[in-house]
């Protein structure tokens, strides 16, 4: 399991890099943004918030190094500071409230998009030179559409004009958040359109590479041999061509996921979805720096975790990574 150990080490390094980046960004930005914020809000901000900000962004006279130490120690305690949009709620609480919404929405849409895109890619590659080739330009077009623009049009047509789906939010506001049937069905209805937006806009990102890998793999010797063996076309397509063609798709999951997460942030904002992307937007427009940074870290960590899951799948799919050496 050296492969997984190496990957894990890489994610630890990346997590540390993200932490450090997060620490450095506000301190290295031109124009001292935190100071500027404090002077702009002088008198209007709760004094305790001012104090917290001052401490958090090192406007007191501590050295960079001791600030960095305090920052890391605070983080291990799950202390991201206080949000001042939702003052005095701790940032961690605000994040926890919205995180699950995003994980479910983006997680399910990504899995659906991956499954649909990969399947269509397999067939489009296998049947190249037929009408399936038209899938390419069509999905390319959809993948070039900005998520938020497509989301707004879908929202306007399906919710606004046809009234098929709710206009905003993650559930009907009169329901309490629990695992009751009315709440779950309401949450599902609210999630359909944002989910659809994410799937439609991201499906080409899986389909096109998969199709191209299928085409490339289909001239490999083992696929030709499988055909020479007189195996059923289904078996040649799935067990020989697709089974190998899918490996790069899983290996490049990282990059594709990055795009989906970015798009999902915008999608949540458009649909006023109670997820972490929307909260990030609130934080940015309110210049709520602690919340902004906390969310950035959490999104990065969740993405790292998702990537590690993808690595597990990769190891499961490719026996060559399981070599003990």
């Amino acid at each position: 399991m050296r492969y997984l150990a190496r990957r894990f080490a890489f994610y630890v390094v990346t997590a540390w890099a993200a932490l450090t980046l997060n620490f450095l960004i506000p301190r290295l930005m031109p124009g001292d943004p935190v100071q500027a914020l404090l002077s702009r809000f002088r008198g209007r901000l709760d004094p305790r918030a001012t104090e917290a900000l001052t401490a958090m962004f090192g406007l007191n006279d501590e050295s960079m190094w001791s600030q960095y130490r305090t920052y890391l120690v605070d983080l291990t305690k799950g202390d991201f500071g206080l949000s001042f949009t939702f003052f005095p709620t701790p940032v961690s609480t605000v994040i926890l409230d919205s995180l699950l919404w995003t994980i479910v929405l983006v997680g399910v849409s990504t899995v659906v998009s991956f499954a649909v895109g990969t399947l269509l890619g397999i067939v489009a590659g296998w049947r190249r030179g037929t009408r399936w080739d038209h899938l390419l330009p069509i999905t390319t077009f959809f993948s070039s559409i900005p998520y938020f623009w497509f989301g707004l049009i879908v929202l306007f047509v399906l919710s606004g004009e046809l009234r098929l789906f709710p206009l905003a939010g993650g559930y009907s506001s009169w329901l309490s958040v629990d695992f009751s049937w009315p709440f779950l069905s309401s949450a599902f209805k609210h999630a359909v359109l944002p989910g659809l937006t994410i799937v439609v806009a991201s499906v080409a990102g899986w389909l096109i590479p998969m199709r191209n890998m299928m085409v490339t793999t289909m001239s490999d010797d083992y696929v030709v041999l499988a055909e020479a063996k007189g195996l059923s076309p289904r078996r040649v397509m799935l067990n020989y061509a697709a089974r190998n063609a899918i490996l790069p798709s899983v290996a490049t999951f990282t990059m594709s996921l990055g795009f989906v997460v970015g798009g999902a942030v915008l999608t949540e904002i458009v649909f006023s979805y109670p997820g972490i992307g929307n909260t990030l937007y609130q934080a940015v427009i309110n210049e709520d720096f602690p919340l902004m940074q906390g969310i950035f870290l959490i999104i990065t960590f969740v993405v790292l975790l998702a990537n590690f899951l993808a690595d597990l799948v990769y190891v499961w799919l490719d026996p060559r990574t399981r070599v003990e050496a």
Partner: peptide, 25 residues
């Protein structure tokens, strides 16, 4: 390579949004 991979894994848009959030202009 480590640097490139780190940047590849960190989701770009949230990072851009955070960076833009701090920008004075």
């Amino acid at each position: 390579s480590a640097l490139a991979n780190v940047f590849l894994v960190i989701p770009a848009l949230p990072l851009v949004v955070v960076l833009a959030g701090y920008l004075p202009t």
